[in-house]
């Protein structure tokens, strides 16, 4: 029974998880889409056919060129290659995701842990605060915040981060509220463990699967709402190649020059779909693992 080493055991567990993951084609497709977006965004200057078209480049002779071999997604109203700008646009989208979730998730998880574990007035204060934030529609709130500050990428990121933590707080709160009655938490207390140990060593590791599933699913929505904000002119400002801004400026030339909006729109769809498929796959995978 215990003929294998612990390291081999763990390796086998990883391989088993990967095998189960691979049997879910949708999840594999999702992972491939997300990886593709990340690789393309990281190596944008090498991948993009016309990296110089990203900034304030103008070539009016080539404006509104339909899709062709040179310009697979066509060109925009200033003659810039849309494919190159989409590729650089992914950088903005992913920066947005990393920044927003990097702030909102740890903060939301921390508050959820505290509210769930301590209960009492700590729970009352934190959970009523999340209710207040939940009561306001996310996009309206983000509009208000970015409009009150100034419409820049940084401000829209801050606005989104301010709106996102409460979902994680609620999720972790309900998870922890049920986990804290597990005997291993009481065993840690009897052993004399500190609250810090119980929160971050006993409870948090048991929340990692829900957090990672939720965060993956969130990534798609952050991109969507971020694109919505910049579509309304409250995100990254031209000539920065933001996908939402591109959809918005291309929309002025619909339906004749349809490629100006459609391709950036499809690019947004592609990432959201990727993150959602991956998130669903992870959820199935981790549910199996947990039970």
């Amino acid at each position: 029974m215990s003929l294998t080493t612990p390291r081999a055991d763990r390796l086998r567990a990883v391989r088993r998880a990967w095998y189960r993951f691979r049997r879910n084609p949708a999840a594999v497709v999702g992972l491939a889409m997300v990886l593709l977006v990340f690789v393309v965004a990281i190596f944008a200057p090498l991948v993009a056919p016309f990296p110089e078209h990203v900034g304030g480049f103008v070539d009016f002779r080539n404006r509104h060129q339909p899709p062709s071999w040179t310009h697979p997604f066509g060109t925009d109203n200033a003659g810039r290659d849309i494919l190159s700008r989409v590729i650089f646009g992914y950088r903005i989208s992913l920066t947005l995701v990393v920044f927003v979730l990097g702030l909102a998730v740890p903060f939301g998880v921390l508050l959820g842990l505290l509210a769930g574990y301590y209960g009492g007035w700590v729970e009352t204060v934190i959970m009523r605060l999340t209710d207040v934030f939940l009561a306001i529609p996310a996009l309206v709130m983000a509009l208000a915040i970015t409009a009150a500050l100034s419409p820049t990428l940084l401000n829209s990121m801050i606005a989104l981060a301010l709106l996102w933590w409460n979902w994680h707080t609620r999720l972790i709160y309900t998870t922890v509220a049920s986990l804290k009655h597990e005997e291993y938490v009481e065993a840690a207390k009897v052993a004399g463990a500190s609250d810090f140990h119980i929160l971050f060593r006993e409870l948090l590791p048991n929340c990692v699967s829900v957090i990672s599933v939720k965060t993956t699913l969130d990534a798609g929505f952050v991109i969507l709402i971020g694109a919505g904000l910049s579509f309304l002119g409250l995100g990254a400002q031209p000539p920065t190649p933001d996908l939402g801004t591109m959809v918005s400026s291309g929309a002025n030339y619909l339906p004749e020059y349809w490629w100006g909006s459609i391709f950036p729109g499809l690019a947004i769809l592609f990432t959201i779909l990727g993150f959602n498929l991956l998130g669903d796959g992870l959820r199935d995978l981790l549910d199996v693992e947990v039970n």
Partner: peptide, 22 residues
């Protein structure tokens, strides 16, 4: 309940270290 008195995410050594560390 031995099923729930050990943290599913922590190894046997981790569990035994808690009282030692504290």
């Amino acid at each position: 309940n031995p099923g729930s008195s050990l943290n599913p995410r922590r190894s046997v050594a981790d569990a035994l270290k808690v009282p030692l560390r504290v």
